[in-house]
């Protein structure tokens, strides 16, 4: 391969990088500038602040002054619900995943069981939302974070089970076998050996589950009124009879993306590693 050809490949590569980065960034850029626009500038073609439109801090100020408590509450609820659901789901999921990876079940075959777990993700949410509402009402859990943690756990757990199963399958079984010879129980070997080894994958799974729970909207809408409403419901509140308030959509979208992004950036290497192991080694 000649040097020249290599150079061309390099240039093409960077062109692709630039295009992809622009493609990913542009909606966020649009949200940022819209959040600094006057309402009457939103649909006027203008993308460069100061040159094409005069930016204003009004939207942000109004959001913080008038909607501050609500947005803070929304963010806190979202964090609580997403963390709660993902930790619970991963806890249960890693237990089940470990079981599926290390044991042969005789009543049901392992594969059928895995599929059964995954099949919980097939449920159309619109069909289960009314029964869930009635269930939560009878448990007196309407408008509580607990209700949403329970629901989200149910929906993200299949994901956790499958990923964790793949993780544990990938771990060399020899270490645990040595432990069993030393008299460790299955439980002890799980806690002392398998779990620590799978820690990065565990973190990654938590994050994926976190993202799913963070974006959940329908159940949040139906099961909460005010106290436990997460950020997605707060965002939907920007549409009212005078139309969608696009400038507030932008501010809230940006606020809502900050916590998971920080999370993702700080632990991103775990995500990628976790996904690698989960997806690749069945």
């Amino acid at each position: 391969m000649s040097k020249k050809r290599h150079g061309i490949v390099e240039i093409l590569l960077w062109i692709v990088v630039v295009i992809v980065v622009l493609w990913v960034i542009s909606p966020f850029y649009w949200a940022v500038i819209t959040s600094f626009k006057k309402p009457s500038d939103v649909f006027r073609l203008s993308s460069i602040p100061w040159i094409q439109f005069q930016p204003t801090l009004n939207n942000w100020q109004t959001e913080f002054n008038q909607r501050g408590p609500e947005i803070t509450r929304g963010l806190l609820n979202s964090v609580t619900i997403a963390v709660g659901a993902s930790v619970l789901a991963v806890f249960l999921g890693s237990l089940a995943g470990y079981g599926l990876a290390r044991h042969r079940y005789t009543k049901w075959r392992n594969q059928s069981m895995s599929f059964w777990f995954l099949s919980q993700r097939f449920l159309p949410p619109a069909a289960t939302v009314i029964p869930f509402f009635l269930l939560m009402k009878s448990l007196k859990l309407l408008d509580t974070q607990i209700a949403l943690i329970l629901v989200n756990t149910t929906f993200v757990m299949p994901f956790a089970v499958l990923i964790m199963r793949d993780m544990f399958k990938e771990l060399p079984v020899e270490l645990e076998e040595a432990a069993w010879v030393d008299g460790c129980s299955r439980w002890q070997s799980f806690v002392r050996i398998a779990l620590p080894l799978a820690a990065p994958a565990l973190v990654a799974t938590v994050i994926i589950c976190f993202a799913f729970a963070w974006n959940e909207f329908l159940f949040a809408l139906v099961l909460t009124y005010k106290k436990a409403s997460p950020m997605t419901v707060v965002i939907a509140g920007t549409e009212h009879t005078q139309g969608v308030q696009f400038w507030y959509v932008s501010t809230r979208l940006l606020l809502a993306i900050i916590p998971p992004t920080i999370l993702a950036l700080t632990v991103q290497k775990y995500i990628v590693r976790g996904l690698t192991m989960g997806a690749v080694k069945g």
Binding site: I130, F133, L221, V222, Y225, K226, V233, A236, G237, E239, H240, T241
Partner: peptide
């Protein structure tokens, strides 16, 4: 209690 406009009916009727 503020309800998103598009979901007013399901929320109140439920």
């Amino acid at each position: 209690v503020e309800i998103p406009f598009a979901e007013l009916r399901e929320k109140i009727f439920t």
